[in-house]
């Protein structure tokens, strides 16, 4: 029997635009305009769409990191919309997020060891050596070294910081991982390592992913289903191979045609 890990219904989030003048009518950005979808256990659900269409807003609202205007988000059957931070805390170990901006999401004053171990606090207490073991293991799985534990975020390259953020999300082995552009800063060989790892975890632990990416090849590799967002709404949704083979929405078609390809000798005709 499969169970539904994430169920999102009619989610709405609008932000006010700054006013050009004091007397201008208030205007809003419709970042989420009634978004609904469901992810079953052990599935990967990809979200693609234009920059600014509301993907990160969706992720933040699913993770209950900001106030939602209306709608519902159920994680493993528990409603999170409208809940206080304390009410959600016990659930946090079951869902983790990898943020789009790794630099902003890593506390610059803490060592990598401490940053990565932080989500473990939501579990039953572990001994020091158990914690150290888990940290070393998860860092190794994303291609970082044991000596990196003592270092601070600023001592790493962009792609290394992104891997620290991934390691932090993986350490509690959560049921649901919401990953916002998690491999965007990685060169292809490290990216391949991380993507294989994400897939292995899915096979061994049945992890469910909500995976935001603008890299269509990556989405195709990892995701069972994909939703295409455009201006705050899902405009197309289905099995990845179907969407990529027969995109119906014009935006999806544009997206697929704009992918640059190496080795074809093609130069941008401008």
């Amino acid at each position: 029997m499969t169970r539904t890990v994430l169920e999102v219904n009619n989610l709405v989030r609008h932000y006010p635009l700054p006013k050009e003048s004091l007397f201008a009518k208030p205007r809003f950005v419709h970042a989420l305009n009634g978004v609904s979808f469901k992810i079953e256990e052990g599935q990967s659900f990809g979200i693609v769409g234009e920059s600014g269409c509301g993907k990160s807003t969706l992720a933040r609202n699913v993770m209950a990191l900001e106030d939602t205007d209306s709608g519902s988000v159920k994680i493993l059957g528990n409603e999170v919309v409208g809940k206080s931070f304390d009410e959600i805390r016990p659930l946090r170990k079951d869902f983790q997020m990898v943020f789009q901006d790794p630099y902003g999401s890593l506390d610059p004053h803490h060592t990598v060891g401490r940053i990565v171990a932080e989500p473990l606090a939501a579990l039953e207490p572990l001994t020091k050596s158990e914690t150290a073991e888990r940290v070393a293991e998860v860092l190794d799985s994303v291609g970082l070294k044991p000596t990196d534990i003592q270092k601070y975020p600023h001592e790493f390259s962009g792609g290394q910081r992104q891997r620290i953020a991934i390691a932090r999300a993986l350490i509690t082995r959560p049921a649901l991982i919401v990953a916002d552009e998690p491999v965007s800063a990685l060169d292809v060989s490290v990216q391949a390592q991380v993507l294989n790892l994400l897939r292995d975890l899915q096979e061994s632990h049945g992890v469910t992913y909500m995976f935001i990416s603008h890299d269509l090849a990556v989405v195709e590799y990892l995701c069972d289903e994909v939703a295409v967002m455009y201006k705050g709404s899902i405009v197309e949704k289905g099995r990845t191979e179907d969407i990529f083979a027969n995109a119906t929405h014009p935006y999806t078609q544009t997206l697929l045609n704009a992918v640059p390809q190496p080795g074809t000798g093609r130069h941008q005709v401008r």
Partner: peptide, 22 residues
């Protein structure tokens, strides 16, 4: 580097090639 690149159209069956080690 080129071997590791995910290519649109390769589908979900195959594993991505990696360069072993760090």
């Amino acid at each position: 580097l080129f071997a590791a690149m995910p290519k649109l159209g390769m589908g979900r069956k195959k594993r991505l090639t990696t360069i072993p080690g760090t």
